[in-house]
Design a protein around this nucleic acid. Structure first.
Length: 419
DNA sequence: TCTGGGGTCCTAGGACCC
DNA sequence: TCTGGGGTCCTAGGACCC
């Protein structure tokens, strides 16, 4: 019997959070808008019933919402983050291990629980009582099937918010009811490509030889196909890995046309990004700046570009980061476009305290020498040929790549051997 | 063990997720 | 005029080394 995995998903999370503090919103159509009140990012069930779409632009729907009596809220991420933490704390009482997957979702390992459905119903009751947030529970032998179960828990009112897909016949019936895009990890593009090869339903995807899937669509889709069969490929990760990148970006209220205006915007984002980074005690070695026109305006000429700028020494210095971002900007700047969006990303984040005396402060020669040492060390430890085998095997190549990347800021070869 | 350019680094971008 | 913001993983392809 495979280990049962549950996916807990808060229903209409942001809208539900607003309701906890404003009970008069209960039973009414409520939508929550994105950062600049740009578009709809959460809807209560009543709002969904009125046909309001996810991502609907506010400016096109303002009057419509008023006419329908829809209550509109600007988003309040501090509040949602706090409510999320309360829900997660409550969930820890119901499982030996838990992965916080997003602000409103968690995977739970339910290994050793006898009556799964009963347990799930008790969990729902408790979360509702302690936090005021309604949740749905999907249970399956893999994360992907748990996701599908969760979707069905929401879709089927008779389920009472809990749906179980532990048995193969249940799984087959469920896969018959949904479309390819309902599968976690399959969106529009992949659906189109799958359909071209004759895979038109989730059941098709489950039955095709995974090796063929791998060849045509890569490892990610292969894993999904295996997960649909009940073969677990995605483990529960209790400890969230350290952040690798962060970004500060915004859409402009009105198009930006001049380099001066764009420089101002990019400098602002670079500062914001640097601030975020320092709050998390991180430093960066690679900075990306990107600019793009408004893809919604088909009548305008389109342009988008990005540029990476490498700092030879990792830094948390706002000034250096801003300078690098502006340098990148001049490389990609093209006059004559109506720019809609820009941003600054910080890549290859490392703990700021590890930067001192690390290889980042050494020359390229030192770094390549360190790389050779790492290769030698791996060959000694695992035998000659390991590197070649590992890099030709798809599963491990990126892990090995990471190991080499990490050689750039660690001098402890034992770290590499553990990978 | 087999094969026969092999291998790494880097950039850019696609695709997906919430 | 007005369509979010913040992430991850994977792959293709060029430069370069041996």
């Amino acid at each position: 019997m495979p280990k049962p995995i549950a996916l807990i998903d808060c229903n209409n999370f942001y809208a539900s959070c607003e309701r906890v503090f404003q009970p008069r919103l209960i039973g009414k159509p409520v939508v929550v808008l994105s950062n600049n009140d740009g578009c709809v990012i959460a809807r209560s069930n009543e709002a969904k019933a009125l046909g309001i779409e996810m991502g609907a632009p506010w400016h096109l729907n303002k009057e419509n919402f008023e006419r329908l009596g829809v209550i509109v809220r600007s988003s309040n991420y501090a509040l949602y983050g706090d409510m999320s933490a309360r829900v997660m704390r409550t969930l820890r009482n119901f499982a030996p291990s838990l992965e916080v997957y997003s602000i409103d979702e968690a995977f739970l390992c339910l290994d050793g629980i006898g009556d799964l459905e009963n347990h799930a119903r008790e969990l729902r009751r408790t979360v509702a009582q302690w936090t005021g947030i309604p949740v749905s529970v999907g249970i399956g032998p893999t994360k992907t099937l748990a996701k599908i179960a969760n979707r069905l828990a929401k879709a089927d009112v008779r389920s009472g918010g809990v749906f179980c897909l532990m048995e193969e016949n249940q799984q087959t019936a469920a896969l018959n009811k949904i479309g390819l895009t309902d599968i976690w990890g399959i969106a529009r593009r992949l659906t189109l490509r799958l359909q071209e090869t004759g895979i038109t339903s989730p059941l098709d995807l489950r039955e095709v030889d995974p090796k063929l899937i791998r060849q045509a669509f890569g490892v990610t889709v292969e894993r999904i196909a295996l997960e649909l069969r009940g073969v677990s490929c995605l483990e529960i990760e209790e400890i969230s890995p350290p952040r690798k990148s962060l970004v500060a970006s915004r859409s402009f209220g009105r198009p930006v046309e001049t380099l001066n205006d764009m420089r101002e915007a990019v400098a602002t984002y670079a500062n914001r990004a640097a601030e975020k980074m320092r709050r998390q005690n991180l430093a960066t070695a690679n900075i990306v700046v990107f600019i793009e026109t408004n893809a919604f305006r088909k009548q305008d000429r389109q342009y988008r570009a990005s540029q990476t700028v490498n700092l030879s020494v990792a830094s948390a210095d706002s000034g250096k980061i801003t300078t690098a971002a502006l340098k990148g900007l001049s490389a990609i700047w093209r006059a004559g476009f109506l720019y809609k969006k820009a941003g600054v990303m910080l890549l290859d984040l490392v703990p700021a305290d590890q930067v001192q005396g690390s290889l980042f402060q050494q020359t390229d020669t030192h770094i390549s020498k360190a790389r050779m040492q790492a290769m030698d060390a791996i060959n000694r430890r695992f035998g000659r040929g390991t590197i070649r085998l590992a890099t030709t095997g798809m599963h491990s190549s990126w892990q090995l790549r990471r190991a080499f990347m990490s050689a750039r800021y660690t001098t402890d070869w034992n770290d590499l051997l553990r990978v």
